[in-house]
Design a protein around this nucleic acid. Sequence first.
DNA 1: AAGACCAGACAGACCTGTCTGTATTATCTC
DNA 2: GAGATAATACAGACAGGTCTGTCTGGTCTT
Lengths: 194, 194
Amino acid sequence: MGRTPAAASEARQRILDTADRLFYAEGVRAVGIDRVIAEAGVAKATLYAHFPSKDDLIVATLRHREASVSEFFRTAMERHGRRTRDKLRAFFAALKDWFQSPGFRGCAFINAAVELADPGHPGSQYVRDYKERFRGMIDGLVEGAVGTAHAKLTPAVAILVEGAVVTAVIHQSADAADVARDAALALVAGAKGG
Amino acid sequence: MGRTPAAASEARQRILDTADRLFYAEGVRAVGIDRVIAEAGVAKATLYAHFPSKDDLIVATLRHREASVSEFFRTAMERHGRRTRDKLRAFFAALKDWFQSPGFRGCAFINAAVELADPGHPGSQYVRDYKERFRGMIDGLVEGAVGTAHAKLTPAVAILVEGAVVTAVIHQSADAADVARDAALALVAGAKGG
DNA sequence: AAGACCAGACAGACCTGTCTGTATTATCTC
DNA sequence: GAGATAATACAGACAGGTCTGTCTGGTCTT
C-alpha cells in the first residue's frame, strides 16, 4: 500500500473536485469526510490513502482552487480585455462576473481562514501565502494602469478588492464590484495627477 | 417554569458573555454548548431555558456584540477626536486600535455569516441588517467630512473598511487601517475638489 | 502477485437537546 | 412569624446522531 498513490489518479481528482465544491458551498467544518466520499463515489480508505488527514485535504483543496481561480481570472480578463484595453478595468469586470456567477459565496481562502480560526493551521498559512501572490497580481495591474511602480497604491486596491468580495457575499449583490472599480480608478487617477 | 425567564438575569448574562468570547475566538461552529455552559458555570437546562436553541444563542450573541462594538467605537473615536477633529480620521484611528487589540480576530459578524454559510439562517439575516446600520454610521462620517451628502462615497468607504478588517486579520497586521484611511481621505478630497 | 480501489464495520470522541431531580430564593397567604 | 407556592438555577444522565480515522475483506486490472 503506497502511502500516497499516483499523484494523477482518477479517484484523487474526484475527491479534490468534490471536496472543493462542498467545502466552498457549505464550509470546511460543516462538510464531513463521509459527505465527501459519498458524493465522490470513493472509499474512505482511498481518501485517507491520498490525504493523511482532513486538514491535509483542506490544504490540497485550497491549492486546487488557486489553480482554477487563476484560470478564471486569466480567461475572464482576456475576454473583457478585448473591449477595455485597461487591464485594471478588465479585472474589475471579471470580478463582477465572479460575483454574479451561480453559487458565489465569497473568497474560499478567506472563508477557510475564518473557519479554521487558528492562524497556525496549515490552511491559514496557505491562505496568507496565497494572498501575497494575489497582491502580486494586483500590483501588476496597478503598475500597468499608473505607468510606474507605486508602492502605496497596490495595498489600497487590494483592500478594495477584499472589501468588495466580502460586501458582495454579505449583501448578495454584485454592485460592490462597480463601487470598488470606480474607487480604484479614482485613486489611480489621483496618483497620476498628483 | 417560564420558557424565557427574566431578560436581565445573572445566568443569562454569564451565558452571553461567555458565548460571545468563545464564539469570537474560536468560531460559532467550533464551540459547543457544553463548552459554553462549563465556562459560564451554568446548567444546561438554564441555557436552554433562556435560549431555545444554539441558533438562537448565536443570534443573541451577535446582538450582544453589536452593543459592545458600538460602545467601543463611540469611546475610541471620542478619545481620538480630541486631537483630530475630523471624525473620519478619528474613526480610522479607532479601527487601528481595534486591529491592535489583543485577541483581534476580525469582524464577528462577517465571521458568523461565513461560518453559517446559509444566507437564510437568522444569524446571516442579522448580519445583513447590522451591516446596513454600520453603513449608516459610515455615511454620517463621510457626510461630516465632505460637507454634503454624497451617495457614491459612502459605499466606497464602507468597502475600504471591510477590506481593511479582512486584510488585518489575514495578515495579522494593523497596517491596513492606515492604507484604508489614506485611500478614504484621497477619495473624499477628490469628491470635494472635483 | 501486486497495486489501487470499493464497501462498510468499528472505536472513541463530540454534538445538540431533553429529562430527572435537587437546592435556593422570593413572594403570597394565613 | 410560619408555611406553602412558584421561579430560577444547579448537576448530570441520557438519547440519537455525527465526527475523524482505522481496519478488515473483497474486487478488478495489469
